[in-house]
Amino acid sequence: MTAAALLTVADLASFYGRAQILHGIGFTCAAGEVVVLLGRNGAGKSTTMKSLIGLVRPAQGRVTFAGADITGAEPHRIARLGLGYVPEERRVFAGLTVAENLDIGRQAPRPGLAPWTPARLYALFPNLAAARDRAAGQMSGGEQQMLAIARTLMGNPRLVLLDEPSEGLSPLIVEQMAEAILALKAEGVGIVLAEQNLHFAERLGDRAVVIEKGAAVWAGSLAALAADDAARQRFLAVGVET
């Protein structure tokens, strides 16, 4: 599996100011694979993603992506190598139209991947097509989430970091989102997904990495996690109620 790995993270440590948040995170993700990061609030999932895209500079460890060492590189260089990032807070450019938002994410086509165009993305997210000339700030939360993903896809990423894409979205839209992510996976794009919605994670994920207090404490297939009641109980504390 590591031979084919698109993204390899080893022994990653990061700080906010003087507070150490990550204590040696390690995992891999291959092309066409969905790896889910699970863990409680404040475990460090978002910080892991920010460290990978370069918004937080790792203090220790090594990140290789598509054969290049990207540890501590600047965000725009990492993004240009084909690592896409969709942040938890969506962060669409509120004053720009939907079409303009897509244009900001545009990057040159990448060999081996069918290039994304606005037309293809509008087909994937019909809600966006109807709103292409509206300011992004006026769209509903769900539409903003779709726009954030579409905008990142315009960069033709080989791998996408998706930070809680289902948060705050209606069940119907979460379903559409799941379809879209599966379509991406089918194209051979690697996906690292941070999730709190277990139904969603279980539907999409190939493998799971459980993060606890900034360290990876469990890794394996989602099927194994579903079967391993002890691990579920211990790391996710699910199955206690109901």
Binding site: R40, N41, E167, Q196, N197, A237, V238, V240
Partner: peptide, 12 residues
């Protein structure tokens, strides 16, 4: 949305 973004266990 009191539990949006919370871990499943804590939502309950």
């Amino acid at each position: 949305e009191p539990t949006a973004g919370m871990a499943p266990a804590e939502r309950g």
